Computed example of a mutant assay.
Amino acid sequence: MDEIQVRGTSVPAIGLGTWQLTGQSCRETVEAALEMGYRHVDTAQAYGNERQVGLGIEAAAVDRGDVFLTTKLDGSNRDARSVRRSTRESLNRLGTDYLDLLLIHWPNTPWMASLSETLGAMNDLVEEGLVRHIGVSNFSPSLLDEARDISSVPILTDQVQYHPYWDQRKLLDYCRIHDVLLTAYSPLARGGVLDDPALVQIGNRYGKSPAQVALRWLLQQDGVAAIPKASSRDHLEANLAVFDFELTDAEVERIRDPSKLRTGVEFARSQLPF
């Protein structure tokens, strides 16, 4: 498993996203993924599956210390008291005494606590040893800049939607300058990459699927990790098998410049609540 070095920390380049995984299926998927070689698991309070994620980690023959575990604060848990309370509840559900990474799931809205209050409480959790690193999710470059100015603890990552139809070059440039990891969720555009003609053609050259080409495209970019969701063993294994080939510069640019029609379709798809 390749790892990315950021602020002296090693983060596995490929992680398991668990959005929409629930119940026994979630537990079994996490267990299977870890036994295949995954060492990066991502969940959130809003997913409602932290307990099952924790059971999957416990069931796998892998030391907890070898797993990079992330969860995210729900929108209702942004004031200082709620940050501290809900994080302890997350730890209890996950069956662990620390988190590798705690994120603000979405930017605070005006009726929530201030970003300063939320980050201050997260900083306190780092001081207490309950959280090792903090970060944000779905923050624009300007909001990420604000968070970095506020927090005394470095912001390790900004987790955002990133795939060939969602341009994040501005954010990625910012992250590279300031040593912040960009973590790509929905890296397969909710399945939108699977029939992309360019990805199919490029994949045929390497004996890889369009999904594997899309993941390779992300991971070849400095400072980018990806957390694709998968539940079947075949997909879990396929997502790991992306480190044995390398795209040419021309292929990288071709993937970066998809058709405007497909980009529009995938943007519309991304706005749907399902």
Rank of each mutant, 00 (worst) to 15 (best):
residue 178 H to V: 06
residue 178 H to N: 14
residue 178 H to Q: 13
residue 178 H to E: 15
residue 178 H to P: 01
residue 179 D to Y: 14
residue 179 D to Q: 12
residue 179 D to M: 08
residue 179 D to H: 14
residue 179 D to T: 04
residue 180 V to M: 07
residue 180 V to Q: 00
residue 180 V to E: 15
residue 180 V to G: 02
residue 180 V to I: 14
residue 181 L to D: 06
residue 181 L to C: 10
residue 182 L to P: 01
residue 182 L to D: 01
residue 182 L to K: 06
residue 182 L to E: 00
residue 182 L to H: 00
residue 182 L to Q: 08
residue 183 T to N: 02
residue 183 T to A: 02
residue 183 T to G: 01
residue 183 T to W: 05
residue 183 T to R: 03
residue 183 T to D: 05
residue 183 T to H: 01
residue 183 T to K: 02
residue 184 A to V: 11
residue 184 A to T: 10
residue 184 A to Q: 01
residue 184 A to F: 05
residue 184 A to C: 03
residue 184 A to R: 09
residue 184 A to I: 00
residue 185 Y to P: 00
residue 185 Y to F: 15
residue 185 Y to A: 01
residue 186 S to V: 05
residue 186 S to C: 13
residue 186 S to P: 02
residue 187 P to K: 03
residue 187 P to G: 08
residue 187 P to H: 00
residue 187 P to Y: 14
residue 187 P to V: 06
residue 187 P to L: 03
residue 188 L to F: 12
residue 188 L to V: 04
residue 188 L to A: 07
residue 189 A to N: 05
residue 189 A to P: 01
residue 190 R to F: 14
residue 190 R to Y: 09
residue 190 R to D: 02
residue 191 G to R: 13
residue 191 G to E: 11
residue 191 G to Q: 09
residue 191 G to Y: 15
residue 192 G to N: 03
residue 192 G to T: 07
residue 192 G to S: 04
residue 192 G to W: 08
residue 192 G to H: 09
residue 192 G to Y: 01
residue 193 V to F: 11
residue 193 V to L: 11
residue 193 V to N: 09
residue 193 V to S: 05
residue 193 V to G: 04
residue 194 L to A: 15
residue 194 L to P: 00
residue 194 L to E: 15
residue 194 L to W: 13
residue 194 L to H: 11
residue 194 L to Q: 13
residue 194 L to T: 10
residue 195 D to R: 10
residue 195 D to L: 11
residue 195 D to G: 04
residue 195 D to E: 15
residue 195 D to F: 14
residue 195 D to Y: 13
residue 195 D to W: 12
residue 196 D to Q: 07
residue 196 D to F: 13
residue 196 D to K: 03
residue 196 D to T: 03
residue 196 D to S: 08
residue 197 P to N: 06
residue 197 P to S: 06
residue 197 P to E: 10
residue 197 P to K: 08
residue 197 P to F: 14
residue 197 P to I: 07
residue 198 A to F: 06
residue 198 A to D: 05
residue 198 A to I: 05
residue 198 A to S: 04
residue 198 A to Y: 09
residue 199 L to F: 11
residue 199 L to I: 04
residue 199 L to N: 00
residue 199 L to Q: 03
residue 199 L to S: 07
residue 200 V to E: 08
residue 200 V to A: 07
residue 201 Q to W: 07
residue 201 Q to M: 06
residue 201 Q to F: 13
residue 201 Q to E: 15
residue 201 Q to K: 14
residue 202 I to Q: 10
residue 202 I to D: 13
residue 202 I to E: 10
residue 202 I to H: 11
residue 202 I to W: 13
residue 203 G to Q: 10
residue 203 G to W: 13
residue 203 G to V: 05
residue 203 G to F: 12
residue 203 G to S: 13
residue 203 G to E: 12
residue 204 N to Y: 03
residue 204 N to P: 01
residue 204 N to H: 11
residue 205 R to F: 10
residue 205 R to E: 14
residue 205 R to G: 02
residue 206 Y to E: 10
residue 206 Y to L: 08
residue 206 Y to A: 12
residue 206 Y to Q: 07
residue 206 Y to V: 03
residue 207 G to R: 01
residue 207 G to F: 07
residue 207 G to V: 06
residue 207 G to M: 02
residue 207 G to Q: 07
residue 208 K to R: 15
residue 209 S to F: 11
residue 209 S to Q: 06
residue 209 S to C: 00
residue 209 S to T: 15
